[in-house]
Amino acid sequence: MQQIFNFVIRNKTFLLFLLLFSTGLALTIQSHSYHKSKFINSANVLTGGVYGTMNSVDQYFHLNTENDILAEENRRLREQLLNLSTNKDTTFIDSSYAKSKYRVTTAEVYKNSYASVNNYLTLNKGTNDGIAQDFGVITSNGIVGIIDNTSKNYATTLSILNKKSRINAKLKASNHIGSLTWDGVSPEFVQLDDVSQFANIKVGDTILTGGESSIFPKGIGIGTIASFDTDISGDTYTIQVKLFNDMTSIGKVYILENLDREEIRSLENKIND
């Protein structure tokens, strides 16, 4: 017993180092599994407060670009609206079924990162605004990521520029589906894997969200095909997708809540059982 105590006291520095280093290592490993980075994340009062102060100064420098983005989005929405009303007489909406499927919340990006291999964004909306895990985050151009952790007033978003991110996507032209991942190299490009060889792919084609998950609605823009090559196995394509969004500069985002999510989840769970 005496020897054990002596050993501990003699090597106390090394043992403490070992303890702290392995704590850091454990937190790192934990953060590498999906939705497990519970303790160390920037959705809390301290970090949110600091980033909020910083953002309130920083946003004045981007007012012009934000205005341009908003004007462009308004133009597009107005175009859609006008085209909608011209063929109104041929469609008929049964109001008993036409219930809204998505609730949209606007949020401001307090922190954005894209230099790491696992990137997160911090948003200024949290559980007080009805935000929860697995809500989709988009801008007017295209998708940004998925809500990961939430606190009362803040939420962290798993960016599509994250090795953990996997999003269902499809080709606009042919509806072939694949899964969207990131290789950690360039913040302008993401990869679309597992696209069937039967797909007719052309450089410049548009990639949209697939709508197979309950997170994003069908048809949200992702990017265009920059290049593609055949997988090692030879029966799928791996496509380089150039993102519509400039992930290095994101100011305002929309958070999407699928109101039918619970229903879809419970149905899917029944299949799994």
């Binding site: 702290l20 290592l25 160390i40 980033y51």
Partner: peptide
């Protein structure tokens, strides 16, 4: 060792990086 760990952990907290800064600082 303690203070370095704390400093690294705070940086991790702000940059959503798990425990990489804490481990490296220690």
């Amino acid at each position: 060792l303690f203070v370095s760990f704390l400093l690294g952990l705070m940086v991790d907290l702000f940059s959503d990086s798990g425990g990489v800064h804490a481990a490296a600082a220690v």
